[in-house]
C-alpha cells in the first residue's frame, strides 16, 4: 500500500486520535467504560494500522521489536509488584490501602498502577503477535 495517497493521509489524520483515545480509555477507566485491557488493544491497533499502511519497517521505528518484546513480561511484573508495597505495611498482597491515606484515593492509585501493568502487557503482546505473523509473511 505504498502509494495509496488517500489511505496514507487518512491514516496520518486518524492515528493521533486513536492514540489519544487509548490514553483516555486507560485513565478514564475509573469513571467510564474501559480500562487497561481495552486501552492496550486500541493502542496496539494504532501501531498495527500504521504498520499495515506504511510498512513493517516504519512501524518498527516507532515501536522497536526488541522493546515491544521486552514490555511483554514487564507489564506482568508491574502488576505483580503493585501488590508488594502493601505487604510491608500490614496490608495483604494487592491491597491498595498503602497508596494513600484516603480510601478512595489509595484505591484509585492502586487500580491505576495495576491497569498500567495490564495496558503494557496487552499492548506489547498484541503488537508482538502481529510482528511475528507479519514477519513470517515476508519469508
Amino acid at each position: 500500500m505504498k502509494f495509496d495517497l488517500i489511505l496514507r493521509v487518512g491514516t496520518k489524520m486518524i492515528l493521533p486520535f486513536i492514540l489519544l483515545f487509548a490514553i483516555y480509555v486507560h485513565f478514564h477507566g475509573d469513571y467510564g467504560p474501559g480500562g487497561g485491557f481495552q486501552a492496550g488493544v486500541i493502542l496496539a491497533a494504532g501501531i498495527i494500522l500504521y504498520a499495515m499502511v506504511f510498512g513493517l519497517d516504519a512501524a518498527r521505528r516507532i515501536a522497536p521489536q526488541g522493546l515491544v518484546e521486552l514490555l511483554v513480561p514487564t507489564g506482568v511484573a508491574v502488576f505483580a509488584a503493585a501488590g508488594l508495597p502493601g505487604m510491608f505495611k500490614d496490608f495483604r498482597y494487592l491491597d491498595y490501602g498503602v497508596y494513600g491515606h484516603d480510601f478512595l484515593h489509595a484505591h484509585e492509585w492502586g487500580i491505576l498502577i495495576v491497569e498500567t501493568g495490564v495496558i503494557i502487557t496487552v499492548f506489547s503482546t498484541m503488537v508482538a503477535i502481529f510482528y511475528a505473523f507479519a514477519d513470517r509473511g515476508r519469508g
Partner: peptide, 26 residues
C-alpha cells in the same frame, strides 16, 4: 470506590483474577 464498578471489581476486588488474566495474555 471508583464509579465504574466494573473497573473496581476487575482491578480491586478481584485483583488476583486480573493478575492471572494478565499472566494468561503474557
Amino acid at each position: 470506590m471508583p464509579p465504574n464498578v466494573v473497573t473496581a471489581v476487575l482491578g480491586d476486588f478481584r485483583g488476583y483474577d486480573t493478575l492471572g488474566e494478565t499472566t494468561v495474555i503474557f
